[in-house]
Structures are given as structure tokens and as C-alpha cells.
């Protein structure tokens, strides 16, 4: 005999006045093939899906583009400025993305280093200020520094996206204290982007109180991306629910869980 359990009702994730049910956002890169990508994204329950902006390959214009595989009516396509190392480039790519796309949101990346893909903070702030003036809703990929996060919020970002660890590293949440601190201070939603590797990483990250997680490599490079997507969906919900429920305190001595009275002689 089994009992059915009803999950608690979850509040929506609100970014730039758009509402989403899922707090898991996913990327579309690095999959071994499109059918795997589509199935994994479906299993993840994600509504927000990132895409990159690149030149059309003029020798292969008849190949099906990503919009063939992911219906823009079903998914919220969030364009990124991946590969941009200056504010000027990121602004240029953002404008093209808005022209090609379906909304005024952009996941802003201004990179500072090729090996670590860590962000160029000055470039991020400069690009944010310009893009916000042009009506963009900027979601900024950044490092886990509190001051940078505050500056990005001040500059008008609708979301700040600190990394858990470097893009594609799978190292998980390296500095929970920094992420917790950012979440406690900012008013805009905080979505951890980059570095999550497996379900426990996602769960621990959500337990810091953040509003959502964006991941790509964790799914695309799993042996079974679809299976991992299911795991991540559960992990994000579990971590969020644990956070909302208020965890027990930690202590350095043991406290028994069974009564200490009523023992036999």
C-alpha cells in the first residue's frame, strides 16, 4: 500500500516582471545531438533556456537551427553574450539578439580571462548601464563578490547571476558564504549560474536561499543527460523547500533522538 504525497505549493520565480514556475534554467550548448538536448530540457522542467548568437554558416544554411528544435512559444529563449570580452562587443551582440529574438532580456557576459572565463566586472557594469538605457532587461553573469553584485543591481540589472564555480568546471558551490551574503543583501533575484556539476550541488546551492540556478554542462556532459535532468529538477525543488523550511541548528555535541528515561535496570 502506498500513500500519495502532495508537494507544497511553490511560489513563482519573478524576473523583470515575468513569472516562471521552474527555478531551474538551462543552457542548450554542448549536447551530443539535438534529440538528446530536447529530451533533457523537457525532463528538467525548465522554462527559461539560454541560446548564443553566432554567424550563420553560409555553407550550411539549410541545416535546422535551434529554433527548429525548441519552440519559442513553449520556451522563454534567453540570449547570452557568450564569447564577448568587451562591453562594446557584449552590447553589439545584445542588440542583435534582441533583433533576432523574442524578448528584451539578455544574459550578459563580459569575460575577462580565457582560461577561467571569469567576468570582467568593469565591462559588465559599463555594458549594463548602456543596455538598461536601451530598455534591455539585463541578467548579469558575475563572480561571487558582494560588492560587484551590488554595483550590478545599482546599474539596473533585473537579476544578478553569481557563479558557483567556473563555467563548465562542475566544481559545485565553492563559496556558500559569498552566495548567501549576496542573496541576503540584494533585492533583485539571485540566480546562480555556472559550475554546478551534480544534483547535490544544485540542492546545496538552493539551500543558500537563492532564487534559481542556471546550468548547462551538468546536463550536457552527464553520461545520461535526460536522467540527470530529472535529478536536477528534483534537487532544485528539494533545496528550495529545505531552505524555506528553516534547517535545524548544527552542534558539536550529540543530542539523542530517543528518550533518555524509561531505560530498564
Amino acid at each position: 500500500m502506498t500513500t500519495s504525497v502532495t508537494d507544497p505549493i511553490e511560489t513563482p520565480l519573478v524576473i523583470g516582471e515575468r513569472q516562471f514556475r521552474s527555478r531551474l534554467l538551462v543552457g542548450t550548448g554542448k549536447y551530443k545531438d539535438n534529440p538528446t538536448m530536447v529530451e533533457a530540457i523537457g525532463a528538467s522542467g525548465a522554462e527559461v533556456v539560454t541560446v548564443a548568437v553566432r554567424r550563420i554558416d553560409l555553407d550550411r544554411t539549410k541545416e535546422e537551427g535551434i529554433l527548429f528544435h525548441l519552440d519559442p512559444e513553449k520556451y522563454f529563449l534567453l540570449a547570452n553574450t557568450a564569447g564577448c570580452y568587451t562591453a562594446e562587443d557584449a552590447i553589439r551582440y545584445s542588440r542583435l539578439a534582441r533583433e533576432a529574438g523574442f524578448n528584451e532580456f539578455v544574459k550578459l557576459e563580459v569575460l575577462g580571462d580565457q582560461e577561467t572565463l571569469l567576468p570582467d566586472v568593469a565591462g559588465l557594469i559599463e555594458a549594463t548601464e548602456t543596455l538598461v538605457k536601451e530598455g534591455f532587461k539585463v541578467m548579469a553573469y558575475t563572480n561571487d563578490d558582494l560588492i560587484t553584485a551590488c554595483r550590478l543591481e545599482d546599474a539596473g540589472c533585473v537579476s544578478v547571476m553569481p557563479l558557483a564555480s567556473p563555467i563548465g568546471s562542475g566544481l559545485g558551490l565553492i563559496n556558500p558564504y559569498n552566495i548567501r551574503t549576496i542573496k541576503k543583501r540584494l533585492s533583485v533575484p539571485v540566480i546562480v549560474d555556472a559550475g554546478v556539476g551534480t544534483a547535490s550541488d544544485a540542492c546545496v546551492t538552493m539551500e543558500q536561499g537563492v532564487d534559481g540556478i542556471l546550468m548547462n554542462t551538468a546536463l550536457a556532459e552527464a553520461r545520461d543527460p535526460v536522467g540527470m535532468a530529472h535529478a536536477m529538477r528534483h534537487a532544485v525543488v528539494a533545496g528550495r523547500q529545505a531552505y524555506l523550511s528553516g534547517r535545524m541548528p548544527t552542534r558539536e555535541i550529540a543530542v539523542p533522538s530517543s528518550p533518555t528515561t524509561g531505560m530498564m535496570d
Binding site: M37, V53, I56, L67, N80, E99, A100, N216
Partner: peptide, 24 residues
């Protein structure tokens, strides 16, 4: 997009044609 058919090309023009691809 509404200007595609009105925009004539000149010698030496540089055109970029971009689209969405998979990315993180």
C-alpha cells in the same frame, strides 16, 4: 526585418548574418 527589402547594398559593404545557436 521590415527594412530588408528596402535596403540596397553598395560596393564594399560589410554584412553580418547571425542567428541563435546552442549555448550556456
Amino acid at each position: 526585418k521590415t527594412e530588408f527589402e528596402n535596403t540596397k547594398l553598395s560596393d564594399g559593404d560589410e554584412v553580418e548574418l547571425v542567428h541563435f545557436v546552442g549555448g550556456g
